[in-house]
């Protein structure tokens, strides 16, 4: 029996708080630099910005030991299945940060070679604009993700939240059908 199988109620919410606190303090990113944003991601991990202040200094080379996927750079059509495979290989719980405009929406590369947003392929938890975003912007987005992780539901609450998200996603317009500035 894991912590996620506690019955709903007071006990579970307490565990949720504790687990969220512990999880957000040791988010390990998977090494996934695709383009120039990866340079800023490396800078964020180096001594001037020092992601290890948030327990994130180990960029894991293996997706199985990683919790966070920072998609840093433009995702080409050829890379899209690889992104998905690496995401699938990560063990739950896992989060995705879409770093930079190219990963978030295709950015200035509105052409047939680039996936118009990595959310066509994997679910994104937080979007970060910028071309490339400076390391402070990345840290800002990571802190926003920490808030989400802290408040993430567990156990039955998590199943309910997942069902609600699934239902909302089925109702929503698919990303590839979006028009105007959302395309």
């Amino acid at each position: 029996m894991g912590v996620e199988e506690a019955p709903s109620g007071f006990l579970l919410t307490t565990i949720e708080d504790l687990a969220g606190y512990l999880r957000k303090a040791s988010v390990w990113p998977v090494t996934f630099g695709l383009a120039c944003c990866a340079i800023e991601m490396m800078a964020a991990g180096a001594s001037r910005f020092d992601l290890s202040r948030f327990g994130m200094e180990v960029f894991r080379a293996s997706p199985r030991q990683a919790d966070l996927m920072i998609v840093a750079g433009r995702v080409s059509q050829k890379m899209a299945p690889v992104v998905r495979q690496v995401y699938d290989q990560m063990s739950e719980p896992k989060w995705v940060l879409s770093m930079g405009v190219c990963a978030s929406s295709g950015g200035m590369f509105n052409n047939y070679a680039i996936v118009q947003g990595v959310d066509h392929v994997i679910p994104v938890d937080i979007y970060l604009p910028g071309c490339p975003p400076r390391p402070e912007m990345l840290i800002n987005a990571i802190l926003g993700l920490h808030d989400q992780i802290q408040n993430a539901p567990l156990g039955v609450n998590r199943i309910e939240a997942a069902r609600a998200a699934e239902a909302a996603a089925m109702e929503a317009t698919p990303t590839f059908e979006m028009k105007g500035l959302l395309r």
């Binding site: 979007y127 970060l128 604009p129 912007m137 987005a141 989400q148 959302l182």
Partner: peptide
């Protein structure tokens, strides 16, 4: 101002 991260695509417009 550079702190612009957001949770949804629509919210970033």
């Amino acid at each position: 101002d550079f702190e612009l991260a957001g949770k949804t695509r629509a919210g970033m417009i």
